[in-house]
């Protein structure tokens, strides 16, 4: 079996951290879930992560902060933002900053798969 791509989920909402990994694994990805940006940065998975599913409004360092920090470290990872604060202006701003996609919660499994595919450039 080929090495599965690692997708990391960073969200402070527990139900997201529980539900998303199951779905992603079902899609065939390896998954690591983190409750904060700081926990992710402190882990050994930063360089292994092929795609980042990142909540915007995190407690502490926010999603966009993490993205900028990674760019600063020259460790930019294709990122799909997810947010419960639905606002089109937020979406366009994030995309302008280099995000692959920005999904508004709640989003469908198909929308997530499309975003991942786009992020990994596997389609």
């Amino acid at each position: 079996m080929v090495q599965r791509s690692l997708v990391s989920v960073v969200d402070d909402d527990q139900s997201v951290r529980e539900s998303l990994p199951d779905l992603l694994r079902h899609f065939g990805f390896a998954v690591q879930a983190f409750s904060s940006a700081e926990a992710f940065l402190a882990s050994e998975f930063v360089s292994l992560t092929k795609c980042l599913i990142l909540d915007v409004a995190l407690v502490g360092m926010s999603g966009p902060d993490l993205q900028r920090e990674l760019i600063r470290r020259r460790q930019a990872i294709p990122t799909v933002f997810i947010t419960a604060h639905g606002d089109t202006s937020v979406r366009s701003r994030l995309l302008a900053l280099g995000a692959t996609e920005c999904l508004f919660k709640p989003f469908s499994d198909d929308a997530l798969l499309d975003a991942l595919t786009k992020a990994l450039g596997t389609r």
Binding site: D13, S15, V16, I82, G86, K105, P106
Partner: peptide
Amino acid sequence: NQPLSGIMT
């Protein structure tokens, strides 16, 4: 939206 997101996923 948070629980809705969980429900859908």
